[in-house]
């Protein structure tokens, strides 16, 4: 077996046998994906529920339109109490030709929605009763806009974040532990070049990133979460590779300055956590204030995130890879160069 192959095999075995590492690489980010995915799954889809007392053509029309969820009540006082208590936003009372709406003024948005729906329905029923042909026709059609369902931005975001975790931690902890345990020294005393050692370690990290991609996307694709991939999803592969090298370089830099695994893991967290929050891992950056968007441009994770989003769920082509790839390569080269300069074989 060549040194390259056996070193890679040794590191893969060490990785697969380390439960804590496996947890932080796979389970931990997956927990975020599951929790946020389930939490935000139905956001914006919930219908407003109102109380209804009585019956008539307006109530039938309301039920037919499906714009509101109706809760039937026989007793107005009981329904009214629910509104007063804040359990329901409004109560509709239909008696013969009169429709009366009592609504809570606390939540303006909800009040306006209920008001608009009910008055619109009353107008429509009135118009139909007169038998007059409407002077203006009205048609509504839904379109897919740029804003995404939560799982659509969560999956690329959390995948990129997970790759940054495995890249930075993997490089930093391996470097520190090998230096501390004198494995680096041992390797230096063997007739293998540093390139062989480094490239086999990077290969293992890239393999890890691809495995993360497969696992996370597979989970998100289940009906429970309902991720929809676009045709250009395979363009995520180059991003996984380049993202790994960039984060690996950062990890090497962190590892060069830390003497113990504990220090390295703390330092890696200090690098990753703010970067993850400011790079749109857990929420789309479009909703963030301008200054935050500007700051986030400094992070490689932000660009990896953008690229992942574009190719995984927005269906963009190769051209979407250009900027993220350029940034990630630049990070790899610059940070890698500094890391090589401050690299130490031993304490």
């Amino acid at each position: 077996m060549t040194a390259f192959k056996s070193l890679s095999a040794a590191m893969v075995k060490g990785f697969l046998r380390d439960r804590l590492t496996l947890f932080f690489v796979f389970v931990f980010p997956l927990m975020f994906l599951v929790v946020f995915g389930l939490l935000f799954r139905d956001s914006g889809a919930e219908k407003t529920k109102v109380a209804v007392v009585g019956d008539g053509p307006v109530v039938s029309a309301l039920a037919e339109s499906g714009a509101l969820e109706l809760e039937k009540h026989d007793d107005f006082e009981a329904a009214r109490r629910k509104v007063d208590d804040g359990d329901l936003p409004a109560v509709i009372v239909a008696r013969g030709g009169a429709v009366e709406l009592t609504f809570a003024a606390g939540d303006q948005t909800q009040a306006q929605t209920v008001l608009g729906v009910v008055s619109g329905t009353v107008d429509k029923v009135n118009l139909a009763a007169t038998g007059v042909v409407p002077a203006f026709s009205f048609k509504a059609q839904p379109v897919e806009d740029a804003s995404l369902k939560p799982i659509q931005y969560l999956t690329p975001g959390i995948l990129s974040w997970a790759v940054s975790i495995s890249g930075v931690f993997g490089a930093a902890l391996t470097l520190v532990s090998w230096r501390k345990k004198q494995v680096l020294r041992r390797i230096r005393l063997a007739p293998v070049g540093p390139t062989v050692v480094l490239s086999s370690r990077i290969l293992v990290s890239i393999g890890t990133a691809v495995a993360q991609g497969v696992v996370f996307v597979a989970v998100a694709l289940t009906p429970l979460f309902g991720l929809e991939l676009t045709g250009s999803w395979w363009l995520a592969l180059p991003l996984l590779v380049l993202g790994t090298t960039a984060f690996f370089a950062i990890g090497m830099l962190v590892g060069a300055f830390c003497k113990t695994e504990e220090a390295a893991s703390g330092a890696a967290n200090i690098v990753i956590m703010p970067m993850a929050f400011l790079s749109g891992t857990f929420f789309p950056l479009e909703k963030a204030p301008g200054w935050l968007q500007a700051v986030s441009n400094a992070f490689p994770l932000r660009h990896m995130n953008d690229g992942m989003l574009d190719v995984l769920v927005r269906g963009k082509g190769v051209e979407a890879l250009l900027l993220p790839s350029a940034v990630l390569i630049a990070f790899t080269l610059v940070v890698g160069f500094i890391a090589a300069r401050v690299f130490r074989w031993e304490d």
Partner: peptide
């Protein structure tokens, strides 16, 4: 060269 007794690859 024999180094410290801990100069091993982890988990192997």
């Amino acid at each position: 060269v024999q180094l410290q007794a801990s100069s091993f690859f982890e988990k192997l």
